[in-house]
């Protein structure tokens, strides 16, 4: 059986908000090390990989592997019934067909319980090799989100160029073109505003901005984001969690 407790329901709410626009139904695999999910979006442009280590829960128990086949939008609907600071517990018996969620407000002596039906989901998995990327950029998650939002007013696509001078985002559409360039920098007072670039060779890739904007909904999970790119390969975009990560593999645009 699985029993996993979080001190604040907001932790799971934010994670679900970060993935729900891309995923419909998917399996969450639970074992003694934690919860994991790997799922492709409908168009197979983005792969979401979520890892929630058992250390990230205030209490965690999972004696044997459990697969939770969930509709992510149904999960989001139920989570809306929890207050952000409620204590949240996830429970599922072995071979059960439901996930039980309880939301507790210890001050008000309120306990709500919801049972979510589980599904048998036949899911595709992709084998993602360990990759040394040509360029790695660590920057503020909020700044990335803002930059992409600004450029989406111009075009459906953004081009990202990384070289030793910095990282440049640019877009071109009917009304004109725009770009934002960030130089590498160290901000001693606000470390999350630093921009760190590790490079073995310059890279330039283009991406669809609608998908990118869905990915940056994970910005509420982490102050920084790690962007990794290699020419002609999907980018890896990672938001670190206290124990785990939400990672996106994002297929670039390719010349016909």
């Amino acid at each position: 059986m699985l029993e996993a407790k979080l001190d604040a329901a907001s932790q799971l709410k934010k994670i679900v908000e970060a993935i729900r626009d891309m995923l419909g139904e998917c399996n969450i695999e639970c074992n003694e090390t934690g919860l994991a999910l790997q799922s492709l979006d409908k168009s197979h442009i983005v792969l979401v990989s979520l890892l929630l280590g058992s250390d990230g829960f205030s209490e965690y128990r999972c004696d044997r592997g459990v697969t939770l086949g969930l509709n992510i939008n149904s999960l989001a609907t139920v989570l809306r019934c929890a207050n952000n600071d409620d204590i949240l517990t996830l429970r599922s018996e072995d071979r059960a067909n439901e996930l039980i969620l309880t939301f507790e407000d210890s001050k008000a002596d309120r306990i709500s319980e919801f049972n979510l039906r589980l599904m048998d989901i036949d899911q595709e998995y992709l084998a993602i090799p360990e990759t040394e990327y040509a360029a790695t950029v660590v920057m503020s998650a909020a700044v990335l989100q803002r930059t992409l939002r600004d450029l989406s007013a111009l075009s459906e696509a953004v081009t990202i160029e990384i070289d030793k001078e910095g990282i440049r985002f640019s877009a071109e559409g009917d009304l004109g073109k725009g770009s934002t360039h960030f130089k590498p920098c160290v901000d001693m007072e606000n470390a999350e505003n630093s921009i760190n670039i590790t490079l073995s060779e310059p890279v330039s890739l283009s991406f669809n901005l609608q998908y990118f904007s869905n990915i940056t909904k994970a910005s509420s999970l982490s102050s920084t984001v790690t962007l990794q790119m290699t020419a002609g390969m999907p980018a890896q975009i990672e938001y670190k969690l206290p124990s785990g990560h939400v990672r996106y593999y994002f297929a670039p645009k390719i010349e016909d």
């Binding site: 492709l40 197979h44 442009i45 993602i128 390969m233 645009k253 390719i254």
Partner: peptide
């Protein structure tokens, strides 16, 4: 023209 390529093009399914 550019188009978005699905991820299977890059990674083998299993």
């Amino acid at each position: 023209h550019k188009h978005q390529d699905p991820l299977e093009r890059f990674y083998n399914g299993h």
